[in-house]
Design a protein around this nucleic acid. Structure first.
Lengths: 126, 126
DNA sequence: CGGTATCCTATGCGATACTG
DNA sequence: CAGTATCGCATAGGATACCG
């Protein structure tokens, strides 16, 4: 979404359009599976089954559903090799790569503050 | 969660514990409302009602629910002023501030690639 | 192997009402 | 003003089965 830092750089109509679109994108992406899939893809190209193994706990359904969404938003590219059995590969586009960098930041954050959070939870339940 | 970049820096038992906790945190945080609330708090201290106005579209219920979760994880601090009517203020802790920085990155990303995504969606629906 | 469709449960989330 | 509790609908998401 368009946060306060950007208001003023756009006219009213653009602002409204960007706001609702941005909100939509934000909802698409602020979702556990999408983030984990992007993180799993990283620099490499992976097949559907490899992704399913890599993103632990994801179901067949959620994987397809999120991959379609990411493809629609132009974050991953899907390549079908016309062979039997079918071979389908997924790779991050440039926007996808850029997003991955910020997700890496999220992972670093989680790692760094794991201890803080653990003790905070303990204190909270008292 | 503990991603590949960190494996090897921990022993087996720690790894499992960190993995499940990390996954939990990730699920807590990779959620639209949590991210928007943290972003709204920013540098400032806000009252419950101010937050509800700031985070557009959030319901009373979702706001309380997410604030409790963030408090439990030690990302926001809740201060109750014993006056009538009650005055409750929320502010980001240091871990919360650190997280906000990475969320800012997410917002920047959304802003930067809004155009890419819009055209990609259009192409996809053909 | 990768994808779609179906069914069913759990959860998200809004609306409303009640308390200190 | 801030919070809790309850109800009820809508969506998320697992399990399973079937198709190219």
């Amino acid at each position: 979404m368009v946060t306060k830092q950007f208001r003023g750089s756009l006219d009213e109509a653009d602002l409204r359009r960007a706001d609702s679109l941005g909100r939509e994108i934000f909802s698409d992406i602020a979702n556990k599976w999408a983030l984990l899939i992007i993180e799993a893809l990283g620099e490499s190209t992976l097949r559907f089954s490899e992704l399913r193994d890599e993103v632990e706990g994801v179901s067949h359904k959620m994987l397809t559903q999120n991959l379609r969404m990411l493809e629609r938003n132009g974050l991953v590219e899907r390549t079908v090799h016309p062979v039997v059995p079918p071979r389908v590969e997924y790779t991050l586009t440039e926007p996808g790569q850029a997003l991955r960098v910020t997700i890496d930041g999220l992972c670093d954050w989680t790692h760094r503050y794991l201890g803080h959070i653990e003790t905070s939870r303990h204190r909270f339940s008292v």
